[in-house]
């Protein structure tokens, strides 16, 4: 038996919007730690890792570890039927083939049940090793979204370079080139507006902008984004999910052959 009650139901709505375009079908894993998901896109270039810790739910009951295969497009359709202020409860029976999403309005005058069919998904779980990253950049998520959107109108690939001067985002295409440099800036009124560049070693890596743009669908979840880079390793683009967890996107670099 599984019963997870999330008072801030809009978080789950936003989480789905952040991953449904990248991944079609995925297993949601439920354990005493929390509600989690790990899935790759169909071309195995990007991986998304989601964790919503059990402590973040108002009520969290998970009698045994459960893996539920869901079509994220269908799940998104159902969650779109929840109001932004609704409390969302996820319910499932052990060994059952459906999951129920219950939406309660804040005033308790409307209660809706949506039952969705589960599916069997053969997915391989990858081990993500702990890595020391050469450079870590924290910036406003809206700024990162703007940069990815702007650069993708010029080229297909972004080169992200971190030096002691700052972080540079570059692209090139048929019509020309573009370079955007951000310098560290911590003298801001609000901490979420800061640009913090932690450089242990300079690093420069190339990534497909199509994926970066897809990651920025998570922008409504968090005011800030953290980008962790190491030579010849996948980049990690992380958005916190309130106080309860995170969405981490891993993207394999383009490497000169």
């Amino acid at each position: 038996m599984l019963e997870l009650r999330l008072v801030q139901g809009s978080l789950l709505k936003k989480v789905l919007e952040s991953i449904k375009d990248l991944v079609n079908d995925a297993n949601f894993d439920c354990s005493s730690t929390g509600f989690s998901l790990q899935a790759m896109d169909s071309s195995h270039v990007a991986l998304v890792s989601l964790l919503l810790r059990s402590e973040g739910f108002e009520h969290y009951r998970c009698d045994r570890n459960l893996s539920m295969g869901m079509n994220l497009g269908n799940m998104s359709k159902m969650l779109k039927c929840a109001g932004n202020d609704d409390i969302i409860t996820i319910k499932a029976d052990d060994g059952g083939d459906t999951v129920t999403f219950m939406f309660e309005s804040p005033t308790q005058d409307k209660i809706a049940d949506f039952e969705m069919k589960l599916m069997d998904i053969d997915s391989e779980h990858l081990g993500i090793p702990d890595a020391e990253y050469h450079s870590i950049v924290r910036m406003p998520s809206s700024e990162f979204q703007r940069i990815c959107k702007d650069l993708s109108t010029i080229g297909d690939t972004v080169v992200i370079s971190v030096t002691k001067e700052g972080v540079k985002f570059s692209t090139a295409g048929d019509i020309g080139t573009a370079n955007i440099v951000l310098r560290q800036n911590t003298t801001v009124d609000k901490p979420e507006d800061a640009i913090v560049i932690e450089m242990n070693e300079p690093v420069s890596l190339s990534f497909a902008l199509r994926y970066m743009n897809s990651f920025t669908k998570a922008t409504p979840l968090s005011d800030t984004v953290t980008i962790s880079l190491s030579s010849e390793l996948p980049v990690v683009v992380e958005y916190k999910v309130a106080e309860m967890g995170y969405i981490r996107y891993y993207l394999a670099p383009k490497i000169e052959e």
Binding site: A46, E124, L126, E256
Partner: peptide
Amino acid sequence: VNQQRQITSFFGKS
């Protein structure tokens, strides 16, 4: 030429 790598060439099955 920059070749797109796959995530599976960095992270193995757990």
